[in-house]
């Protein structure tokens, strides 16, 4: 099943990535090549096989209901590209129409 340009654009929208026209065309071809590799799995009989998801059989790992160590706000915000007091600043979340 071949992926088309529109599919790539849709996936880019979900992944929050922007591509130039050229990149889109090139990536569509490339993605089809890689998907052909993935499609080899179609030949494997997996009827009745449980998916693995996690490799360890450990269960019930909990923490207690106590606060842990806290990062001081200045350290937590030290890498922020745009900070205002103890918050991160971004362009308006709700459009100001």
């Amino acid at each position: 099943m071949a992926v088309e340009r529109g599919d790539v654009e849709h996936v880019a929208m979900l992944a929050m990535l922007a591509f130039t026209e050229e990149e889109l065309v090139a990536f569509t071809t490339e993605m089809n090549g890689i998907l052909a590799l993935f499609e080899e799995l179609e030949g494997v009989d997996t009827d009745g096989v449980e998916p693995a998801f996690r490799v360890l059989r450990r269960r019930n790992v909990f923490r207690g209901d106590e606060p842990g160590e806290m990062l001081p706000p200045d350290e937590a915000l030290a890498n922020a590209p745009d900070r205002h007091e103890d918050a991160f600043r971004v362009p308006a979340v709700l459009p100001n129409d």
Partner: peptide, 17 residues
């Protein structure tokens, strides 16, 4: 939570995590 930044000059929204 995000709050609209009324003060602080340039507007936008503030994110408190």
């Amino acid at each position: 939570k995000s709050v609209h930044a009324e003060h602080g000059g340039e507007g936008g929204s503030l994110i408190d995590v």
